[in-house]
């Protein structure tokens, strides 16, 4: 019961975190809370992706679902006046329908591996192009903003961005819900079925597992989570653009953060989010303050974090395919004298 012990210590710390941040960084607490909020939102999205990714369903299509979540919510609010309390569920339903429309033929025709990744990549591009093409409503590649409702925090419009502490608790709850879903899936019979299917589809089908249905279930959950995450991201940022919340780079970021953190453990995607967000922030801040680098590269220095990011991903996939947390846990299991449980993460 490693997870519950971690939770007993970790949860109070997370709940007290705004206070800690306030005490430690009195002047710039807004910035640190912003960072924490970003990490938690992306952790939720990454966790949603990992529900599929851990079973070998490497989707590059989740940038489409985050995009649908964010855009459907904002457009319904801006043009139909529909409160996000209804808009978000509608957006999630749309994302799930799209996911099932693409997922069913994929799983039915046994499309896996490269083909699945490239097909879902096409879905991402399709959605991004639709967003750009509908520029009269979506603002095209410049993005758009949810219409402000009143000045500050609004329950009706689900706008909480001015109050950072409130935002933090909202996304913390979201993240906990994400972990709970992950845990439920992990404990379910579906997980064993999907594990079996990811190793050998034919064999799994031959022992009576309805592979298509099992995959569709987890795809629907995963798409709904990513749509919700995308919607909350839009409500918090108060800006959505096709490159920040939809599109190929979002899809790739999701996949890579999950791999960096560790696909097969509950907190792996979260560790991936912490790692990637902190890395890019540290690099960004240190570069902006470094005179030498600025003189060398000018404003292009901002690309340095992507450069290092790409390099680290290559190294991770080659040398640490189980991710940071996966590798750490494995190490601990090896050093402890307890009999090693059967490996849960079988890398093919």
């Amino acid at each position: 019961m490693r997870v519950s012990r971690t939770a007993l210590i970790g949860l109070p710390i997370l709940i007290a975190l705004p206070l800690i941040v306030h005490l430690l960084f009195g002047g710039s607490e807004k910035y640190y809370l912003h960072l924490l909020i970003q990490i938690l939102i992306w952790s939720f999205i990454y966790t949603g992706w990992s529900l599929m990714g851990r079973f070998g369903l490497t989707s590059l299509g989740h940038g489409a679902f985050t995009g649908i979540g964010a855009y459907a919510t904002v457009l319904l609010w801006n043009y139909a006046g529909l409160t996000p309390w209804l808009g978000v569920p509608v957006a999630m339903v749309i994302a799930v329908v799209v996911a099932l429309l693409v997922g069913y033929p994929c799983f039915h025709m046994r499309i896996t591996g490269h083909y699945f990744a490239l097909l879902t990549l096409a879905l991402t591009e399709f959605i991004r192009l639709c967003i750009v093409g509908l520029r009269d409503y979506t603002g095209g590649s410049l993005g758009t903003q949810p219409r402000r409702y009143g000045d500050g925090v609004s329950l009706y419009a689900m706008q909480f961005e001015p109050d950072r502490v409130l935002s933090y608790y909202i996304v913390l709850t979201l993240w906990l819900v994400g972990l709970y879903i992950w845990w439920r899936v992990d404990r379910s019979m579906d997980r064993f079925a999907l594990d079996a299917a990811s190793q050998d589809e034919e064999a799994a089908a031959s022992v009576g597992i309805n592979v298509t249905r099992e995959k569709l279930k987890v795809t629907a959950i995963s798409a709904a989570m990513c749509a919700l995450g995308g919607a909350i991201y839009g409500q918090y940022q108060m800006y959505i653009g096709p490159d920040t919340i939809a599109g190929l780079s979002v899809s790739l970021n999701i996949v890579f953060a999950c791999i960096a953190g560790g696909l097969w453990v509950m907190l792996g995607p979260t560790v991936g989010a912490v790692f990637t967000q902190v890395l890019s922030e540290v690099l960004r801040v240190s570069m902006q303050s470094s005179v030498t680098l600025q003189a060398l590269f000018g404003s292009a220095v901002l690309a340095l974090d992507t450069l290092i990011y790409g390099l680290l991903l290559i190294l991770f996939i080659i040398y640490m395919p189980k991710g940071i947390l996966g590798a750490l846990l494995e190490k601990r299991e090896k050093t402890s004298s307890a009999p090693t449980p059967p490996s849960r993460a079988v890398l093919r």
């Binding site: 070998g56 490269h114 790739l252 996949v255 450069l307 991903l313 290559i314 996939i317 395919p321």
Partner: peptide
């Protein structure tokens, strides 16, 4: 895994 081969070149893309 085939998918790791695809993703590693994704890292090259960013780089």
């Amino acid at each position: 895994a085939p998918i790791n081969q695809l993703l590693v070149t994704g890292g090259v893309l960013f780089f």
